[in-house]
Every structure is written in structure tokens, then in C-alpha cells.
Design a protein around this nucleic acid. Structure first.
Length: 360
RNA sequence: GUCCCCAUCGUCUAGCCUGGCCUAGGACGCCGGCCUUUCAAGCCGGCAACACGGGUUCGAAUCCCGUUGGGGACA
């Protein structure tokens, strides 16, 4: 059983699997509203979105494999959208893709696959599953620039033995080459995208539509507490953000902290964004030893930020203190911290709060 | 209400004294693009001002006069 988003990667995955002799059953999860309508209107194959149903159907037909669309909008709403909106409203910076894989995409594919008696579940993610000490572990892709293990760290350990990532260690040019050989409109398969369920505007307008009370103006302050401007609502800012503040002081200002209690947003210079520690909660661990004692790992705090050496110190059953060897920029509550040992994913969790470095 | 200062891009300003190198520079903001399965960040590019009216001069943001609009221990 293969999750087919309609993008290049899962399409090529479908190709590879059929070549390998599998009887592929393609599944496209309909996660949000009918994208087909907007697609038809724009006369393109797709606009944005993880799930371009029409294109997935086209690829499946082309490869002669079964294709099915499964409506998962309810689960997506409950597991991803609600988390997303409430996270922003409370001043955090949630990562919907992490949540989607955990609660919708991989979860439902695995459940469905098992219910239907499939031999395994595959997706077009750039990640690998390799054995380590006799157990399957999630690993980074060998394609370092496309590695998506960060988005997958919340999959349940018991799914690992069932999952397959056919394009997991391919390089982009290869994938495109295969896609073109398949006759896929390569230029229409552009992969860059923003949040899949935000089809117009940005996440801010989405949050505001879903939660009108998010628009609640408050004050911008500098580190000394001086008022230097007015903001639209804490939901619209994230630590480390520079643009969109509208505060011109002659020096670049970055969001330092979002304070829900006072509805204020503290601004300051970039250097003040560096932190050595953070607390991570809501853990999903593949290697239990992490919960036992201090562990040296590499921690990745954002998808586009390289992992960095750190020590994990368990603080309570579902909480760990991460001490970074070198300070990290803008650790943002709500984002995920993923722990690695080399390419192997040990687990990860949600950044909860931070300890500002004491002045040296 | 006499006298004295000040008046440049959205913001803060460089330039004015020693007129031409100013088709007015910078910073921050803003806009667009790139990047990107989150949000950010980063990179590239772009828009945008000499308060107004007269003069002097070959030539004025730069000098002079006035108008308007802001600020100052006389009232």
C-alpha cells in the first residue's frame, strides 16, 4: 500500500515499487477541502498541497495500479488543524507536518494497510528504515539536503517494521529523471510549498479565519520593557522572526519572546536569540536509553537547521533538558527537537520552554 | 506676542558651513523573487524624499528672501 500525494516523490515511489514487482495499491488521503475544484479552476495540475488528488489518480492510471481516495478530513481537522490553531493562539509555533505524519498520514496508512492485509506501507518520504541492534530504526536519508526524517520522528515505534521509503536515499536529479521517463509533467511537479492546507495568503490569515479572537493587538517591547510599537496579536509572531514587525529603529530587530500572559512581544537584537538549553516535552522515543540517563546526541531544532551536538538530561518521565554544545538560534516553543545518533533517529519531542543564558 | 532655532525616502538620517563628484547615500521598515512538505531565518532584487514659492548663479538639497509647519528661560 502506497501513500500517493500526487507529487514527484510518491509518484516515482509508485514506479519503483511496480518495477520491483509489487502489486501496488495507491492511496491518496484527502486531508482538506476539495482541492480538485481549485485545480480545475487554475487549469494547472495542482497549486499547493500535500495531496493533489487529480495528479495522483493520473499517475496511478498511467502505471496501471489501483488508486483510491480516502477521506481523512475529520482526523486531519482534529489532529492537525486544531493543534495548529490553538498552538499559535497560545503563542507557540506548531509544526503541522510533524503532527500530520504522526496522527493522520502515516498513522492512517498503517492502520488501513494492516486492516486490508497489505504487506507493508510505503510513502515518498526521504528517509530510511535500517536495522540497529536487531530492531528497525528511522534514519536520515543519504540525500542530506532532502532528508525528511525530521518530519517523521513522531511515528510509533511499532510502525517502523511496516514502513518503506522507496525513494528514501535517491538524489533529486535521479527522481526527476525517473519522473520524466514516466511522462510526468516535471515542471508541474514543483515541490516547493508552504503549509498544505493554506491555499491563499499565509498561515496568519488562516489562523485568523479559524480563530478570529487571535487578532488581539498588544505591545512590542524592547528588552528593557520600553514600548516600541504595536502588534496584531501574539499568534502572528514566532521567536526569531524579523520581517513583518513594522518597527523601524535603525537596527534589525527579532522577536525574542512571545508573552501570552501580558499579550506582549519582546523584540531585540539577533545575538540575544542564542540559547544553550531548552526543555523538550511530549517525547516520542525509539531508543529507551534516552530516558535513562544523560546521552550525547545531535539535536535538530528546525527542519532547515542542521543538527548540532547536545547532551540530553532526563528531567522527568516525559521531559528532557537539552544542553547544546554551541548555542542555537531562536529555539521556538512548539517546534520539534529531533535527536540523532549519526543518521539514526533516537526520538524527539516538542520544544517547551527555554532557559535564557545567563550573562557571562 | 518680539527674538532665536529647525524642516531631506514610511522611520532615523548623510549631504548644507567650503554651491557642480546628488539622475540625493545609508540604516531600519515595506514590497517582490529565490529557498522550503511547518513557522522562521537567510540570499537576491525593487519602490520611495530635498515642505512650498520666489530669487542669486552658467549651475542649488546646498546661498538669500518670504510662506507654511514644528521647538525654545520675553511676555
Amino acid at each position: 500500500m502506497l501513500g500517493m500525494s500526487g507529487g514527484v516523490d510518491s509518484s516515482v515511489a509508485a514506479l519503483l515499487l511496480t518495477e520491483q514487482g509489487y502489486r501496488v495499491h495507491g492511496i491518496t488521503l484527502q486531508v482538506w477541502e476539495h482541492e480538485d475544484e481549485t485545480v480545475a479552476r487554475s487549469k494547472r495540475w495542482q497549486e499547493r498541497g500535500c495531496c493533489k488528488i487529480g495528479l495522483a489518480r493520473h499517475v496511478a492510471k498511467r502505471l496501471g495500479i489501483v488508486h483510491e481516495v480516502v477521506d481523512t478530513r475529520e482526523a486531519f481537522r482534529a489532529g492537525v488543524i486544531d493543534d495548529f490553531v490553538s498552538g499559535y493562539v497560545s503563542g507557540a509555533t506548531p509544526n503541522p507536518c510533524v503532527r500530520c505524519n504522526e496522527r493522520v498520514k502515516l498513522r492512517l496508512l498503517c492502520e488501513l494497510g494492516r486492516a486490508r492485509g497489505a504487506d507493508g506501507v510505503a510513502t515518498g518520504h526521504y528517509a530510511r528504515i535500517l536495522p540497529h541492534e536487531g530492531r528497525p530504526y528511522l534514519h536520515r536519508s543519504t540525500n542530506a539536503t532532502k532528508d525528511q526524517s525530521y518530519f517523521l520522528y513522531r511515528v510509533k515505534p511499532e510502525w517502523l517494521s511496516y514502513l518503506h521509503f522507496p525513494v528514501g536515499d535517491m538524489q533529486k536529479p535521479e527522481v526527476y529523471a525517473r519522473a520524466e521517463a514516466l511522462g510526468l509533467p516535471a515542471d508541474e511537479l514543483k515541490e516547493s510549498q508552504e503549509i498544505c492546507f493554506v491555499s491563499e495568503g499565509n498561515y496568519r490569515s488562516f489562523v485568523e479565519r479559524e480563530a478570529p479572537h487571535a487578532r488581539r493587538p498588544g505591545l512590542f517591547q524592547d528588552e528593557t520593557g520600553r514600548t516600541i510599537g504595536q502588534h496584531d496579536g501574539i499568534a502572528f509572531y514566532t521567536r526569531g522572526q524579523r520581517r513583518g514587525l513594522g518597527v523601524a529603529t535603525g537596527r534589525r530587530l527579532y522577536v525574542q519572546t512571545v508573552v501570552p500572559e501580558t499579550n506582549t512581544v519582546v523584540l531585540g537584537p539577533e545575538e540575544a536569540l542564542l540559547q544553550h538549553e531548552c526543555v523538550v516535552t511530549d517525547l516520542n522515543l525509539f531508543d529507551d536509553r534516552i530516558a535513562d540517563g544523560p546521552a550525547d546526541v545531535e539535536a535538530k531544532v528546525r527542519y532547515a537547521t542542521p543538527s548540532s551536538p547536545a547532551t540530553l538530561e532526563p528531567a522527568s518521565p516525559d521531559r528532557v533538558l537539552v544542553r547544546f554544545r554551541s548555542p542555537q538560534r531562536a529555539l521556538s516553543p512548539g517546534q520539534s527537537a529531533v535527536f540523532y545518533c549519526g543518521d539514526r533517529v533516537l526520538g524527539g519531542g516538542i520544544i517547551h520552554e527555554d532557559f535564557r543564558d545567563l550573562p557571562a
